[in-house]
Simulated assay, not measured.
Amino acid sequence: MSSQWERSSTARVVAPARPRKLAKVPFVELADGRLQGVVSSGSDAARVYVSSVAAGDFAYACSTNNNRPCGGARGGFCNHIRALLGEAVLQYGGARVARYLRVEAEEGEQGEPGPAAIEYAISLTRPPMADRTDAAPVFSRFLRHLAYLEFAPATEPLPEMTWFPANRAAA
């Protein structure tokens, strides 16, 4: 028998493992077989990077939102990917991130792997650079999430969500 949330048209929201600041890494997700997200530039407030690490083979990519390559991601993780990994551990917990990426990382003081342990375990495999073409969908999803911040809090259905089957039945 399925639970109530499985029968509803809304997704369950999982609370962050620990609070995190959104200024450096405003968007992080475990999706499409990758840890991926948007990371703010340390040198230019108008620039952001789309960074990712693939599950399994750990292929990594980092480029600006207009698809220019990150200069620091040569032969290993750049600071953007390290920041993404750190925020993912805060958001989802180290055990969940390690499990999603399919990496065997040592547990730390918190009883689960930290970002440094996950990065170290990945670095032992000498991960390859990945193709940067997947940056556009990640950045687009981030912008779509930002658009929802412009809406006033309400309990009414959103017009762009009417394609959900539950909304059609109620209409």
Rank of each mutant, 00 (worst) to 15 (best):
M1Y: 13
S2T: 15
S2Y: 09
S3P: 03
S3H: 10
Q4N: 14
Q4C: 15
S8W: 02
V13W: 12
A15Q: 14
A15T: 13
A17W: 08
P19I: 10
R20F: 13
L22D: 14
L22C: 11
A23R: 07
V25F: 05
P26M: 12
F27V: 02
E29H: 05
L30I: 09
L30N: 01
L30F: 03
G33C: 00
R34S: 10
L35N: 10
Q36F: 01
V38E: 11
V39C: 03
V39I: 01
V39T: 01
S40N: 11
S41G: 02
S41E: 02
S43F: 03
D44N: 15
A45E: 04
A45T: 10
A46K: 14
V48F: 10
S52R: 06
S52G: 13
A55I: 05
A55H: 07
G56I: 05
D57L: 03
A59T: 07
A59I: 11
A59P: 01
Y60P: 05
A61T: 12
P69F: 01
G71V: 04
G71Y: 06
A73E: 12
R74P: 06
F77I: 01
C78S: 05
C78Q: 08
I81A: 00
R82G: 10
R82C: 06
R82Q: 13
G86R: 12
G86V: 07
E87H: 07
A88Y: 04
A88H: 02
V89K: 00
V89N: 06
L90K: 15
Q91A: 14
Q91Y: 04
G93W: 00
G93T: 07
G94S: 00
G94Q: 00
R96N: 06
V97N: 04
A98D: 02
R99V: 01
Y100R: 01
Y100D: 05
V103H: 02
E107F: 04
E112M: 08
E112D: 03
P113A: 01
P115Y: 08
A117R: 14
I118M: 01
Y120I: 10
A121Y: 03
S123G: 11
S123C: 13
T125Q: 10
R126Y: 09
P128T: 09
M129W: 07
M129V: 15
D131T: 12
T133N: 05
T133G: 07
D134T: 14
D134I: 08
D134A: 15
D134L: 11
A135S: 14
A135H: 11
V138P: 10
V138G: 00
V138F: 09
S140N: 14
S140I: 01
F142M: 01
R144D: 13
L146G: 05
L146K: 14
A147E: 14
Y148R: 15
Y148H: 11
L149M: 09
F151R: 15
A152M: 03
P153F: 13
E156K: 11
P157Q: 00
P157E: 08
P157M: 03
P157C: 04
E160V: 08
T162V: 12
T162F: 11
W163V: 10
F164W: 09
F164M: 08
F164T: 10
P165M: 02
P165Y: 00
N167I: 12
N167G: 09
A169M: 09
A169P: 08
A169L: 12
A171H: 09
A171G: 06
